[in-house]
């Protein structure tokens, strides 16, 4: 039955409570009269409940303490991380603005700061600006060019920087003190 297909496509959304009032009523009216769709809805509930409790084995390293030690060992060879430009400018504002999702005003303030520093920086000799910072900084600007994007950034972070990490590290490596 065509009706059933339409309803079945909505069963997951119904389970998640994501249907609008009208759609929800339609689905529930259908479920009150269609045992096949009731069975499907039951299977969706069962699948999600089972997925949630599927077991995960302990890590082969043996214990979480051993896992931690392994991470520490791998990190020991890395240069200590330093705050990026964003961190140096914006971190002091965290307490004021950024504990909640970024309001437009705070985003605009941040953008203003970035642009202001950008103007100052572009007037400096290129040799004064470390290459790694230029990359991070350009990225901040690229994001800053679109306020809407900036506003929706409360979960987005600059993975692009991550992806360029090798480049950044090569550029930056000479100036960072290494951990002994």
């Amino acid at each position: 039955m065509n009706d059933c297909e339409t309803i079945r496509d909505q069963l997951v959304a119904h389970h998640e409570g994501e249907l609008g009032e009208g759609e929800r009523r339609l689905v529930e009216a259908h479920l009150s009269a269609c045992p096949d769709c009731v069975r499907d809805a039951g299977l969706i509930r069962e699948a999600l409940a089972r997925v949630e409790t599927l077991p995960v084995p302990e890590p082969p390293v043996g214990s979480w303490q051993a896992f931690e030690v392994a991470v520490r060992r791998r990190i020991a060879g890395e240069a200590p991380p330093r705050p990026g430009l964003w961190g140096r400018l914006i971190a002091p504002l965290h307490g004021l603005f950024l504990l909640r999702p970024v309001p437009a005003l705070a985003a605009a303030t941040a953008l203003g700061l970035l642009l202001a520093v950008g103007l100052v920086r572009t007037q400096r000799s290129p040799r004064d600006v470390p290459p790694a910072e230029v990359l991070v900084f350009n990225e901040d600007l690229a994001i800053g060019q679109n306020l809407e994007v900036l506003e929706s950034l409360d979960f987005l972070e600059d993975i692009e920087v991550l992806e360029r990490l090798d480049v950044l590290q090569k550029l930056d490596g000479g100036r960072r003190p290494r951990l002994s």
Partner: peptide, 18 residues
């Protein structure tokens, strides 16, 4: 483990927006 190493390396670029 690799995820933590990468996070450590790029911690400076974490903006605290998320």
């Amino acid at each position: 483990q690799e995820a933590f190493v990468q996070a450590y390396r790029s911690l400076g670029s974490f903006r605290g927006l998320s």
